[in-house]
Design a binder for these strands. Structure first.
Length: 276
DNA sequence: CTCGGCTACTTAACCACACCTGTAA
DNA sequence: TTTTACAGGTGTGGTTAAGTAGCCG
């Protein structure tokens, strides 16, 4: 048996602001939380990254590693990028590109091990889906080790099998589904199975470097995009923490020249221009 | 082992409005 | 084609109700 392994992993990167969160929880479909059975938008899955409402984690073979564990509350500003990015130092994703991933669960279904025979459940976008809308990168696996983990038997000797994984947007989040991706198989040349020329080696290295650089620049604390809005918000009067209307007396007077002013006759309080 | 009560902690929603963006005139 | 005006959407922070977790009897 020389079936190619299909490694299923999901990278679920939650990157959401606080506000829309409640509108999507418990109501969307997607990967489920193995602890509570809820969807990917399950509040358990969203629980990591308390302070800045951002969390990044992966579901590797459906295993939920942390968010249901007691005493794993995140300190403010910290981040869980365990599993996918390396649980120890968040430093190494080398296995993603060169080395085998962590152990795969026992419940790998035979169907998932069949190249080009993925079940519909893992093909939410169908053949019409163009991964150009997502980020596709290469995943190389030592197949022998994968076979050993999956209990597939030795099989023929082989080198590596590269699968492409596509990062896709879903449910306001980002998923990576390598299982739904097409595996690159050896091709028959002169009656011999030969792996196509691999021009992607340097490409992969470049991608890895770009990824690492991007990761180092990644910031998870709240970032102010508009300092002026922050300034106005801080000056704005509040009632029990909520913004309140600017009192009539303290509203800006009509300026002599064109400028902004308050127009309390309108709900949206848009711009009102005075012209000299 | 399960349940209820309590405490401590976390977080999404709320609000007004300046500013941004897209569109029509 | 360019400029102007406008409508609608976005982002901003402090407070709090609601949700969650942990502990104990």
């Amino acid at each position: 048996m020389t079936s190619n392994p299909s490694i299923l992993f999901l990278l679920h990167t939650i990157s959401i602001d606080k506000k829309p969160l409640r509108s999507i929880d418990r109501s969307m479909s997607g990967p489920t939380c193995s602890a509570c059975g809820a969807s990917a938008c399950c509040p358990h899955l969203l629980h990591a990254g308390a302070d800045d409402s951002r969390a990044a984690f992966s579901i590797f073979t459906g295993e939920v590693h942390d968010h249901h564990q007691p005493g794993t509350q995140q300190p403010p500003g910290s981040l869980h990028e365990f599993q996918f990015f390396g649980q120890d130092d968040h430093e190494s994703i080398a296995w993603l590109f060169d080395d085998p991933p962590p152990a795969v669960g026992d419940d790998q279904s035979p169907v998932e091990n069949q190249p080009h025979q993925r079940p519909p459940a893992f093909d939410p976008f169908g053949p019409q889906y163009h991964p150009g809308k997502g980020l596709t990168f290469e995943v190389s696996l030592g197949q022998g080790e994968v076979d050993a983990r999956l209990g597939l038997g030795g099989g023929a000797p082989h080198t590596e099998t590269a699968a492409s994984a596509t990062i896709m947007s879903f449910c306001g989040s980002t998923f990576t589904d390598a299982a739904s991706s097409r595996l690159k198989e050896p091709i028959l040349i002169n009656n011999q199975l030969q792996r196509p020329a691999d021009p992607s080696s340097m490409e992969r290295e470049a991608k890895l470097m770009r990824y690492k650089e991007k990761r180092t620049r990644r910031r998870y604390e709240k970032q102010i995009r508009y300092a002026s809005r922050k300034a106005y918000a801080e000056m704005r009067p509040r009632l029990r923490g909520r913004f309140t209307k600017v009192p009539e007396a303290s509203a800006p007077r009509q300026p002599a020249l064109a400028t902004t002013c308050y127009d309390h006759s309108r709900l949206d309080l848009g711009r009102c221009w005075f012209h000299a």
